[in-house]
């Protein structure tokens, strides 16, 4: 059943120019870091660290992971938003349902699409990270530096979270510009304004557990670690165990997809 639905999504979008363009840009953007690096020194918070230190194993997973989290945020988000909003614009979702696709079918199709995009993304992520790592490590051997399961899980959850959030936003707003606007604004402004102001007034850090902050903590900005190491203070905005973080991220993914399903089922199309 799902393969039938995946094939349907493929048929629909295989010649959609914007989506192909986004996919191409996504792959290019993920590959760009291959071309940086070399033997020059990097000036950063901690001067004693060389380029090899950041781009070699094992730190490459953190650095490239952080980069990966931004690129996926934009591209997986935009791709998901576009696949949904274009079907509202052309009324093809309406027509699909009229002729026999159920709303649940459509949801399963979008869930499968998200899983496939996320899966392919972490494969690309691993290959590129290993490639950069080998290039910048003198001592590295390939097999010692395969990504561990936690990193892959984090990467997958990250992608699924952005896909799920984008799906929810697109099903609510339907219009492409509106949903792109909200998707970006929510992450850059809305959540951080809520988080910072309420944390301040309530004198708590509970709002650090809002979804996008949790998701972005899957691959936090790596300099935090360096600063934490050198100063001994904790800048991580979430104080939670690794497994707790994964569980929380997974819960938010369930919430995004669950709400998306509800919106899809309940509303007129």
């Amino acid at each position: 059943m799902a393969t039938h639905l995946i094939k349907l999504e493929f048929l629909k979008f295989k010649n959609h120019k914007t989506i192909l363009l986004f996919l191409g840009m996504y792959i290019v953007a993920l590959s760009l870091p291959i071309f940086i690096g070399g033997d020059s020194e990097i000036t950063s918070a901690a001067n004693q660290y060389t380029m090899d230190y950041f781009l070699g194993f094992p730190n490459i997973w953190k650095w490239y992971g952080y980069y990966f989290s931004w690129i996926t945020f934009f591209f997986l988000g935009f791709i998901t938003l576009t696949t949904v909003s274009s079907e509202f614009k052309n009324k093809t979702l309406r027509q699909s349902i009229i002729i026999g696709l159920t709303r649940t079918d459509y949801f399963i199709a979008k869930l499968s699409q998200s899983k496939i995009l996320s899966f392919l993304s972490i494969i690309l992520f691993s290959i590129i990270a290993i490639f950069i790592g080998i290039k910048n490590s003198t001592y590295a051997t390939f097999f010692e530096n395969l990504p561990d399961l936690t990193i892959l899980t984090k990467g997958f959850l990250l992608c699924m979270a952005y896909c799920g959030f984008a799906l929810l936003v697109a099903l609510i707003f339907r219009n492409n510009s509106l949903s792109v606007f909200f998707y970006v604004c929510y992450i850059f402004f809305i959540e951080s304004i809520i988080r910072n102001s309420l944390n301040y007034y309530l004198n708590t850090d509970i709002l650090n557990y809002l979804p996008m902050n949790v998701i972005s903590n899957l691959f936090p900005m790596p300099v935090y670690n360096i600063i934490e190491n050198t100063t001994g203070t904790s800048l991580m905005s979430i104080d939670i165990s690794e497994n707790g973080l994964l569980a929380l991220a997974f819960t938010y993914i369930l919430v995004f997809f669950g709400l998306a399903y509800l919106v899809l089922i309940k509303r007129d199309i």
Partner: peptide, 15 residues
């Protein structure tokens, strides 16, 4: 719905 063919208001296709 799989046993129904329908046009509702406008022809809706992938442009």
């Amino acid at each position: 719905n799989k046993k129904i063919g329908a046009i509702l208001e406008t022809p809706n296709f992938y442009p």
